[in-house]
Measured scan of single mutants.
Amino acid sequence: KNALMQLNEIKPGLQYTLLSQTGPVHAPLFVMSVEVNGQVFEGSGPTKKKAKLHAAEKALR
Rank of each mutant, 00 (worst) to 15 (best):
K1M: 15
K1D: 15
N2K: 05
N2M: 05
A3P: 15
L4Y: 15
L4E: 10
L4Q: 09
L4D: 06
M5D: 15
Q6P: 00
L7D: 03
N8G: 10
N8H: 11
E9T: 13
E9P: 00
E9G: 11
I10M: 15
K11V: 13
P12L: 02
L14P: 11
L14V: 13
Q15W: 04
Q15V: 14
Q15M: 08
Q15K: 12
Q15Y: 06
Y16P: 04
Y16C: 03
T17I: 11
T17F: 07
L18D: 02
L18W: 06
L18G: 03
L19Y: 03
S20M: 09
T22Q: 09
T22I: 07
G23D: 07
P24V: 06
V25S: 14
V25R: 15
V25Y: 10
H26I: 08
A27K: 15
A27G: 09
A27V: 06
A27C: 12
P28V: 03
L29M: 14
L29E: 13
L29P: 04
V31T: 15
V31Y: 09
M32S: 06
M32W: 04
S33V: 08
S33F: 04
S33L: 06
S33P: 01
S33W: 04
V34S: 01
V34P: 01
V34E: 02
V34C: 07
E35V: 10
V36M: 07
V36C: 05
V36H: 06
G38L: 01
G38T: 02
G38Y: 02
G38Q: 06
G38P: 01
G38K: 07
Q39G: 06
Q39F: 06
Q39E: 14
V40W: 07
V40T: 11
V40H: 09
V40G: 05
F41G: 01
F41M: 03
F41S: 06
E42V: 09
E42D: 07
G43H: 00
S44A: 09
S44F: 05
P46I: 08
P46S: 12
T47R: 01
T47H: 01
T47L: 01
K48M: 13
K48Y: 05
K48L: 10
K48H: 07
K48E: 11
K49W: 14
K49G: 14
K49I: 11
K50F: 06
K50I: 11
K50R: 10
A51T: 00
A51I: 03
K52Q: 12
L53F: 05
H54Y: 09
A55C: 12
A55E: 00
A55G: 00
A56M: 01
A56G: 02
A56T: 02
E57M: 06
E57V: 07
E57H: 08
K58M: 13
A59P: 00
A59L: 04
L60K: 01
L60N: 03
